[in-house]
């Protein structure tokens, strides 16, 4: 039964793929990563996965593919070697990366708006677990004049961190 389904899919894929060989369907998507929005002109949305080129990966997320894994500065996440093809593939002279597989690997929540092709990637588990060490999570935010301040600027002082809202 499984085999029947697979071959039917394969048949459909052949029909579909015919006008755009080897690339599947490419679409313009918006990715929000670390609360920064980037437009990606050519992404592949396939079966709940999101493939983007490694050039777009760097631009949208700051992460790069390195021999030791997916890295940004000192932060590196090794890609499981047995599941390599679920993360990285080469097509039409470009290297493509599956951002959904990576999000699952680092336990990053994803919210998606299918109609507007917008993908929001939330905090990774390493960013969320900081709190349980009782170390106050650091952040950098602007004041009214646009000057940036970090919580860590106040190291050496006692700080009352307090939120409010106009609403």
């Amino acid at each position: 039964m499984m085999k029947g389904r697979l071959s039917a899919c394969a048949f459909l894929l052949v029909l579909w793929a015919a006008p755009i060989p080897a690339q599947g369907r490419q679409a313009k998507v918006t990715i929000i990563y670390d609360d920064k929005a980037s437009e990606i002109n050519a992404a592949n949305e396939e079966a709940g996965h999101l493939w983007i080129t490694t050039v777009d990966l760097k631009r949208a997320t700051g992460f790069e593919l390195k021999p030791q894994g997916v890295c940004r500065d000192e932060l590196c996440f090794p890609v499981p070697s047995v599941r390599q093809e679920g993360f990285v593939r080469k097509r039409s002279g470009k290297t493509w990366f599956n951002l959904v597989a990576f999000a699952n690997l680092v336990q990053q929540p994803i919210a998606q708006d299918e109609g507007l092709r917008t993908w929001y990637f939330g905090l990774r588990s390493d960013q969320r677990e900081g709190l349980s060490s009782l170390k106050a999570p650091d952040f950098m935010l602007p004041d009214m004049s646009g000057r940036l301040h970090s919580l860590s600027d106040f190291r050496g002082k006692k700080v009352l961190l307090v939120t409010w809202a106009s609403w």
């Binding site: 709190l131 999570p137 190291r155 050496g156 006692k158 009352l160 939120t163």
Partner: peptide
Amino acid sequence: LYNMVNVPTGVWIDEHG
């Protein structure tokens, strides 16, 4: 980052962060 659910919410952070 702090799992806050309302405002005003305060957290005290010491000299060592």
